[in-house]
Design a protein around this nucleic acid. Structure first.
Length: 810
RNA sequence: GCACUCGUGGCGGAAUGGUAGACGCGCACGGUUCAGAACCGUGUCCGCUUACGCGGGUGGAGGUUCAAGUCCUCUCGAGUGCACCA
């Protein structure tokens, strides 16, 4: 009996699939119901595919194959996120131009993906750094621009004074440049933004989406919708006011101070001559600190008095106004009202300042009013309002809206909704990205590049190491151009786009990747969108997945796509570890797939990755563990190719196939169910059990065919080989997904556990349709059970198919 | 600090509230072999017992239930996310 030769067999089938164009999708007009199966595309770094990619792609392919066998026309494309920092950094490190390294890496990765033997369509050439693609990324930018969703404003960046370059947050370590260790400073640049905040409310609508609850929760928090009220306070002795935002106005009778953010424009006007020096010093101190440092100072509150007072209309209280860096300019109004009796940060600030009065307006559940010595006692959600005139006796939650009504009716304030989400900064002062399609003309100002002139070709520049401005600025041929409006001399925008822009629409390009007339044909995209299954890492929960939803909704509003949401079902894969630790180059524990694929074949490798643990939870790689799956493949092949005479034991216990129908159908049912839940490990375990059994009691032809179809999505090459050996000419992937026949799932007998006072005391085998009386009688008769029943039965339990139980006197 | 997820043999992990440890790795013994590898078979939670069995057992402490790995409360530990969001 010949052994199964994985590598040989896999080559043979991969060639045959290609030749027969087995996985080609009819994109214009799917013959069967469509199924759009997408995995987050990789960026081609210099390190090629690692185990993590395989861990991700194998189940994606398995899932796609299952859906194909379930009668869907499956579209399973793959592209490359080839602009961006990793490629640029790799190029800087190696001294080879990013265009070259990117090309080489994509080719290498394509080879590797082909070696998986998946249904992935690599022929689409969706590569974000190619002009055929970024032409349309620029088009997307212009759509947003036209809608007023792309705009410019000043914004701070991390700046390294030594390298004269802008740093991404991830290039800053402890406030220092990761390369030269120079202190990083903040610098303001005029930059491009997408107004994602205009879609904040819409993005909170997750209707119809089958997403992990956790991801939705994270996005909701990221968007951070807060309903509150902007309260207007007059400033004592000045012809001005300050506006504060609060969500808890019901505590306003306890407000004793106001804090303004150091960046706020009103600081100067509020500062009196007497306090100018102190405030100026404080502002100078703050400016020195980078954003990171300000965050690191953690809880120690600092601040200075401006000399001005805001008047609380409710009480007439004159609230001193302070400048303090714990108040953020970017949220609310940049000014906060301090209620030290009932807000932890306000309490800490009051303590730090020393001379701020603390008034309590909520009686805690314990009623302890005087003991405000500890911070924990400050924040109260429960309790009863006191010292607050109109609100006295109310619960804080009820008091909120009453207070808002009251303030609005008196003109003290106005209800507002604020979001934590900020607009998306999309410009980068980097080389390896899509140029922003804008021209700056002295006469006409900011002019969008006409769509007919796209793409704005990314210039080839030899010195692409980042300088003060974008490297694109060094190419005169690129920068100098004619104004599309007046025809006069003008300069191109030199910033490039954040790669998240490129990756926020690629799934719209796949179905119509060759289109040179438009980013996509609406009809074509409507045929395939939304993505039915989107699989990728959980680290993209807030950025990529939110940006993609935003862009997609904008495209929807502009009438370019019909679906509202891009991703119907979302699944995150877990992480592969080695000896419990995250794989990383610095630890030196990175497992490369290639050698294992060469040794065991792709089927074994991918099945082991799926067998390691539940897909969504990840697993720990073990060089030894893979041998278990390798053995299983051998055994499976043997089981499938043996006839009754070759059964491993002596003569088969029963005739070929006889009696195995139950197990076969049960295995189909169990494995299908497990695969639906993405618990591939359990599905494989079920197949192993069946194989162990079937080596002793051979299967008949029909049973074998059922099992081959079942294993096909998990081990496609192996399945094809066996399918052919069983006498078939057509691919097994043109067959349907096996369905368990309920007739064979009906058990004729059940082994019941018998519990006495919750402890297992014996088992009894009964007919599946045994009556309660018969079951209890049989259970009582079990010798070991009987002796415990002597104490006297209090209660009898019979759960059909599950358990028999007795409760006896203690 | 806050939020979420997860704690089950030597290891990876199974288990719609119903016989905990499926399946695999490893290990032990036996077979096959000149020998080894590979392969095949048997065993493998812990303690006591020749055995039938008995007792304990899913990070820890309580609770609900005839019955808890699973549900609830507290607690300890690990991982992930967010970082003063008023």
């Amino acid at each position: 009996m010949p052994d199964y030769n994985g590598s040989e067999t896999e080559k043979k089938w991969q060639a045959r699939w290609k030749e027969q164009k087995l996985y080609e999708t009819n994109l214009a007009q799917p013959a069967r119901p469509k199924y759009y199966n997408v995995t987050m595309f990789p960026y081609p770094s210099g390190d090629a595919l690692h185990v993590g990619h395989w861990y991700n792609y194998s189940p994606v392919d398995t899932w796609g194959r299952v859906m194909r066998m379930r009668g869907f026309e499956v579209f399973q494309p793959m592209g490359f996120d080839s602009f961006g920092l990793p490629a640029e950094n790799y190029a800087i490190k190696t001294g080879v131009h990013p265009a070259e390294t990117t090309r080489a890496n994509i080719d290498k990765m394509k080879e590797q993906i082909a070696a998986i033997g998946g249904m992935f369509d690599l022929s689409l050439n969706v590569e974000t750094s190619s002009p055929e693609y970024y032409k349309w990324t620029q088009w997307v930018f212009l759509q947003l621009y036209k809608k007023g969703l792309a705009y410019r404003k000043e914004a701070p960046v991390n700046w390294c004074p030594t390298d004269q370059t802008v740093l991404a947050n991830e290039q800053v370590e402890d406030g220092k440049c990761e390369r030269c260790k120079t202190e990083v400073v903040q610098k303001n640049l005029r930059q491009w933004f997408f107004a994602i905040t205009k879609y904040a409310d819409q993005l909170l609508d997750y209707e119809g989406l089958d997403w992990p609850e956790k991801t939705v929760l994270m996005q909701q928090h990221w968007i951070g919708r807060k309903e509150g009220i902007n309260i207007d306070y007059k400033v004592k002795g000045k012809d001005m006011g300050v506006v504060v935002f609060t969500t808890r106005p019901e505590t306003n009778f306890g407000a004793t101070f106001v804090v303004i953010s150091p960046e706020h424009a009103q600081v100067a006007a509020l500062t009196t001559a007497e306090h100018k020096q102190a405030v100026d010093d404080y502002l100078k101190e703050t400016k020195k600190k980078s954003e990171l440092e300000r965050q690191m100072t953690d809880r120690k509150k600092t601040g200075v008095f401006t000399g001005s007072y805001a008047i609380n209309d409710l009480t007439g209280y004159e609230m001193p106004i302070y400048v303090a860096d714990y108040v953020l300019m970017g949220f609310g109004t940049g000014i906060v009202v301090g209620v030290p009796g009932h807000d932890l940060r306000d309490f800490e600030f009051a303590e730090a300042m020393g001379n701020i009065e603390i008034i309590r307006v909520i009686k805690g559940p314990n009623g302890e009013m005087d003991a405000i010595t500890k911070a924990e006692q400050v924040q109260e959600d429960e309790g009863e309002i006191i010292n607050s005139e109109i609100l006295n006796g109310l619960k804080p939650r009820e008091a909120i809206s009453k207070m808002m009504d009251y303030m609005e009716s008196r003109g003290f304030g106005k209800r507002v909704v604020n979001f934590r989400l900020r607009d998306w900064l999309v410009s980068r002062q980097r080389y390896w990205g899509a140029p922003i399609p804008i021209i700056n003309c002295e006469k006409c100002g900011e002019v969008p590049v006409p769509e007919k002139d796209l793409p704005v070709v990314h210039p080839h520049i030899e010195d692409y190491v980042p300088k003060g401005t974008s490297p694109l600025a060094t190419s005169e041929a690129f920068v100098n151009t004619a104004c599309p409006t007046c025809g006069g001399a003008a300069k191109r925008e030199v910033d490039t786009m954040d790669t998240f822009v490129c990756s926020s629409w690629y799934f719209l390009r796949y179905p119509d990747a060759g289109n040179t007339e438009a980013a996509w044909d609406k009809k074509r995209v409507d045929t395939w969108m939304p993505v039915d299954m989107y699989i990728g890492g959980p680290e993209h929960a807030c950025m990529h997945l939110l940006y993609a939803r935003f862009i997609h909704r904008v495209m929807h509003d502009l009438g370019h796509v019909s679906a509202k949401e891009p991703f119907k079902k979302l699944v995150h894969q877990g992480m592969v570890t080695k000896d419990g630790a995250k794989m990383s180059k610095s630890r030196g524990n990175v497992v490369s797939p290639d050698s294992f694929v060469a040794k065991y074949g792709s089927d074994v490798f991918r099945m082991y990755l799926m067998f390691m643990g539940p897909f969504t939870e990840g697993g720990d790689w073990s060089d030894r563990g893979i041998t278990g799956v390798a053995r299983f493949v051998e055994r499976f092949y043997r089981m499938m190719t043996q006839d009754e005479k070759q059964a491993a034991g002596a003569a088969p216990l029963r005739g070929v196939g006889e009696g195995m129908d139950g197990l076969v159908h049960q295995t189909v049912a169990r494995a299908s169910e497990a695969i639906d839940k993405m618990n591939f490990n359990v599905a494989i375990a079920a197949l192993m059990e069946l194989t162990n059994e079937a080596l002793q009691k051979p299967l008949n032809g029909a049973q074998k065919e059922m099992i081959v179809r079942l294993i096909a999505p998990l081990a496609p090459h192996l399945a094809e080989e066996v399918w052919e050996k069983l006498g078939h000419k057509e691919s097994v992937f043109n067959e349907s997904w096996p369905k368990a026949d309920p007739k064979f799932l009906v058990q004729t007998s059940v082994t019941y556990g018998v519990q006495v006072n919750g402890k297992l005391r014996g088992t009894v085998e009964l007919a599946a349709d045994a009556s309660k009386e018969d079951a209890l009688a049989a259970a009582r008769a079990v010798e070991n059970v009987a002796k415990y029943l002597e104490a006297g039965i209090v209660k009898e339990i019979f759960v059909p198919g599950k358990i028999i139980g007795f409760v006896v006197k203690a």
